[in-house]
Every structure is written in C-alpha cells, then in structure tokens.
Design a protein around this nucleic acid. Structure first.
Lengths: 194, 194, 194, 194
DNA sequence: TATGAATGAGATTTCATTCAT
DNA sequence: CATGAATGAAATCTCATTCAT
C-alpha cells in the first residue's frame, strides 16, 4: 500500500530534477548521488550507465504523461470535447508536474542517443482526435500531422512563455485562449460572411 | 567580392554544425578543430574559451536571422502583410539556412551560461506587429505575448515536424496553411453567425 | 559415496573455471557468484577475501595434481620407469582435469601475492627421480635442476600446443615421443659408435 | 641520428617494466604515468586505452625479438648450425633484453584480449629450420610442430629457472647443454647398437 | 598566428567488501 | 548460513585549456 521510497526512486527523482535544471551532459553522477543521498557507486547497481538512467527517466515520465492525458480524456465524447480535454490536460500536467513535463517536452532529451520509436504517443493521440473530427465533418480537412504540429506548438510554446513569466494573463484565461485558438484553426469555414 | 574563408570562419562553421548535431556540451574542442581543419590550440587564438565560441556562434546567427527577417518585412505595410511576411520569413530562413535556424531556435543555447538580453529580437518584432494590428483594430485584443507565443509555437513546431519528414504536404502549402491559421487566431471575431 | 556438491564446492569450481579463462585479476566476485549460482555476499561466508579464495583454488588443485602423480608412480621401480610414469602422469592429468592442470601450470597464479613454499612439489619429485637415476648410473650426470627444467618444459609446452590444436599427431604418439625425447636427453652416452 | 626520447618512448618503456612486474591488470595507468614521468592524460594522447598500450608493448617487443633472432641466424648454413643459432639467439635475447623477452614469453599477454595472428613468428622460424633439416635427412622425421614445442619448452623453461636462481650451472654451460639436448632430440637414430 | 603535445582537474565506471535483514 | 543492496576507494578515461616551439 505504502510506497517504500527505495534508493532507486530517490535516484530517479534526483536525476529528473537535475537533468531538468542542467541538462543531461551538464549533470554529473556526483551531483545525482549527492542529491539522492546515495553513493555514486549505487547508481551503477541500478543502471548500466548515466545514459541508461536518463533514458529511464525520460521513458518513465513520458509514460506518466501519457496516462495522465488518457485519464483526462476519459469523459469526452465529441471531437471538440476531446481536443479541449487534450489541451487542458497538457496544461494541467505542466502545472502539476512541471519537472516531468519539462523533461518530456524540453529539448534535454535531444541529448539522449536514441529515443524509443513510440516516443510521441501524445502526438499520435492528438492526430487521432483530429482524424476523428474530420471523419465526423466537425474539423476541416487539413493534413492531420500539420494540424497536430500547429496545435502542439501553440500549447508548448505558451507553457514555456508562462513559466518564464512572459505572459501576464491568468492561467485559466491562457488555457481558454489557447483552446479557442486551436478550435478556430480546426473549425470548418462554413460561415456565410467569410 | 568573394568570401575569403578564413580560419575563423571555418571555425565558426564547424562549431555551428557540431553544436547543432551534438549540443554544445556534447561537442569537444577536438571535434571542432578536426572538422575545421585546424589545430585545437588555434581555437584559443580566436576565442577565450569554448563557451565564448558558442556565444559568438549564437550571436552571429541570431543577428543573421534578424537581418533576414527585416529584409523580408521591408515591403509590408498592413499588419496582416507584416504578419504574413514574418511567417514566410521564418520558414524561408529555416529552409535556406537550416543549421543557423536550428541553432537559434533549438534548445541547445540553453546550455549557454548567459544569453544576451536582446536575445529574442524576433519575438519582439512579432509582438510589435501584433500591437500595431491591435491599434489599428485589425487584430483582436489578445495579450500580445500570449499571441506571439502561440504564433511562434505554430511556426517552429511545424518546421520541426517538416524537417523530420512527418508532414506530407508541400512546403508552399504548409506556409500557406500556417499563415491562414495564424490569421484566424488574430482575426477579430465580428462575424454575425458566431 | 556421492559428492554432495555444496555451495562451497560450486564456488571453488566456478572460481577455477573463471580464473583459468580470465585470470584472477580479470575475474570479478560478481562473475564468480553468478557462475556459482550464489550471491556475492556468500563468497565472504567461505573465504575472507577473493585473494584467499584464489589461494585455496590453487592449493587444492596442486594437491590433487600431486596425489594424482604419486598414484601414477606407485608401480614404477627403475628410474626410467619412474620418469616415464611421471611424464605419462602429467599428460594424463592434463587430459582428465584440464582446468585444474592449466591453473596449476599456467601463469595465472603469478597473480597470487605469495605462494606457499612447497609450491613445486612435482618439480621436486622430478628432480628426485633424476638424482636417483644418476646415483644408479642410468642417467648422465647433468645438473638435475637443469634437466628438470628441460623435461618439464618439453612436457608443458607440448601440452599447451596440443590444447591449441597445433599438433596433428595423436595423443598416444605425442606422449611416446616426449617420453623418448626425455630419455634421450638423460641417456648416458656410452654407445660405441659415438 | 639521435633518438629524441619522446614521451611516447618513456611511456612504452615504463609500461613494459610495470606490466612485467605486476601484470597488465595489476598495473594502473597511474603507476605507468608516474614511472614515465608524464601525466595520466598523456597516455591517452598516444593510445586509445590501456589495453591498446599493452598490445603495442607486446607487438613492439615481439618485433624486436624477431629481428634479433634473424640477425643471429644470418651466418648459419646447415640446419644444425641454424638450430644452434636459434637456441643461442633466444638465450642471448633473454640475457640482454630480459624485460622484453619476459613480456613476450611470459604469460602476461594472456591478459590481452586478442593477439595478432602472426604472434608466433619465432615458432614458425623454428619449425622451418626443423623441416629443412628433415628434408636434408639430418633430422629425424618427427612432426615438426611437436618437435618445435619440445625445443621451445626446453629453452624457455630453462631460462625461467635460471632467472629464478634455480640452476647453479654457468650460463654458457646451460646453453651448451640445452643445445646438445635439442640436437639429441632431433638426431636421426642410425646408431647400430640401439 | 598556428601548432599539437602535454596537462590536470574532474567525470564516469568498476568492484571487493560490508552489513542489515 | 545466505542474501543483495549499498558503499567508497580507486581505476579508467575525457577534455578544455596551456605553452613551448
């Protein structure tokens, strides 16, 4: 029932925090051991190398993000609802688990040698939502990968600016605004006046 | 008339290419010297440290990008034209000078100790365009930093996907589509039917 | 009747096999534990250190070799018979207990800090045989240590070449040939024709 | 004309001496650097790894030994002369360049991952001499690899015993004795009385 | 300016040994 | 007796920087 916080968990947490702040290359095993309250040698009882530790940190947090998003989408039925939930989900995850979010989305993992193929599950989830909306005639027939790119770009860049204090507007307003913008991008252009 | 490629230029080019591929920390002075066809010691004739070399690479390319964008915007007058030109400009720069673009926009420069304050000239240019449009009543009154974030996100993420072969649509269509989407985000919502 | 293979035996066997292949320094306690199917900690239940384990492996196998040789020599009476039996004995031991033979004769034990003084029992046995033969006037009066060196060299080098597939002749012929050569080295040169 | 004793030579000499005394695994890069009077890092400017350094030490000394032997054999014409010269050559090399000899013949190189194929040039030289003698009917028709094994064994083991003070006889006598023994092993058995 | 060998501080990794369970 | 996670000292290796030429 309880989580026996093992050394391995300490290790992963410490690594996540440091990789985030300093990048993978910029973080030494000594830093990690120190923060995790373990000895350097212990790292190598759990991972074959610093590289593998980083891979695991990335994999684990991507997985978490993925599960978070799925939960968020559970109660949505229409494509519009789903898109809204998706956007809200990403913002929420970034707010509640900022370190995990950042490591997954930030560029630090470009330092990893090779990422698993399925690395962008969330991106695929988004593409699926868009295709569904198109099939139902609710979204305009734009290339789904292109649309996914734009939507993801809007979300992540906005979060990045927010974190850096560059956006004065409140969190809720930002989410609402991004949602509205994404919908406007996908909306079928049926309106007479246009 | 010609560009007499000096040692220093070789050096900067080699550094740019390698920083891009491997990050700054991930690139050794040995790598750089090898690729530039000079000796390691020579690096220190031109720069006080690897860090300074990286700073210069960044500064130089940002400057280039900045000039490129300004030229692109020269003939635009209305805010819409300017926004269009801005978007086209970024795409063009990314196409013609991919390495430079990537280094400026990629996250590698997060490895740099301290970035110059004026680092985000293009972002400010974008915000200025948006404010102008708002002043003229052509863009809706959204927080300009938020809007700038969304627009930049759309552009950069799309370019990233394109470079990675994830978007099947032609270059021109992509630019057109992103432009349309950005405009739809900024458009004043006056339409009767809504 | 049976050999109840205890953990300690597993340990000694695993150690022997690995020390042979990789040397003592080249074998880690982890390797040993893995191969013995026990945990690393268990090694220290039985031996105070890896060094002591190696000492014991060496001691045990030298003892075995020594007993094997003595049994082989039991029924010999003349010095020639004894020399023949000695040679045959070494070859047989090498054939039946290759790992043990190799560890005893190979150089790996040079890695051991201090070898027991009686380490070269077999060599002394050989010298004794030679002295006996000389006392009886059957072997020529050559320095016995020198002769022992030559004879041992012939035997061990031949075994080494055989193990490495460098000798095409059958096992029996090799033994016969080495025996003949050793005898020719020790033979008194009385023959008329010379 | 002069030998500018470079750091690399210092390095190889120091490594040879230490590998000999302590084995390869038993010698640390720190030891080597200290003895060579250079810094540890410098080792890696010349060799990719300690392993490669050891390979080079081995290769170099084998080469030296090989050249030494060839010079020794230059003036021999009959197979008997050549065999004598070969034996004398090995003893001489061991006397003049003991460290080099030992490293080439001792077992330390069993610690090397993989030896070059041509590792045993001297052995092949010996086999060639034996075949020549057989072709001329001066040596008896024994398998040449077997004979080579026996002869090499006699030589190396004798040298080993000598170095360890186990043989009381003078150097010249030892060489003479080993030579005589080798010849007696190869001699055609024509004598009536046998 | 240019070179490239050398440096040394520090990073990663290894491994025999210990110890709480 | 047995375990195996943890340790920490030491080993290997890296690399930005210096310096004599």
């Amino acid at each position: 029932m309880s989580k026996p916080i093992t050394k391995k968990d300490e290790l992963l947490n410490a690594a996540l925090a440091l990789f985030m702040k300093q990048g993978i290359k910029g973080t030494t095993t000594r830093d990690i051991a120190l923060r995790a309250g373990i000895s350097e040698g212990t790292i190598y009882r759990h991972f074959a190398s610093k590289e593998e530790l980083a891979q695991e940190v990335f994999r684990q947090n991507l997985e978490l993000f993925w599960r978070f998003l799925r939960r968020e989408l559970r109660n949505s039925s229409t494509p519009e609802d789903m898109l809204e939930a998706f956007i809200r989900g990403v913002f929420e995850f970034a707010r509640k688990h900022h370190r995990r979010y950042s490591f997954v989305f930030s560029a630090h993992h470009t330092e990893l040698r090779r990422l698993s193929r399925n690395k962008m599950k969330p991106k695929q989830m988004l593409a699926k939502i868009l295709r569904l909306g198109q099939a139902q005639g609710r979204f305009r027939p734009i290339d789904t990968n292109l649309a996914a790119a734009m939507i993801l770009g809007m979300i992540t860049q906005t979060i990045f600016y927010m974190r850096n204090g560059l956006i004065k507007v409140s969190y809720d307003e930002v989410v609402a605004e991004v949602t509205r913008s994404c919908l406007s991008v996908m909306r079928t252009e049926t309106l007479a006046g246009q």
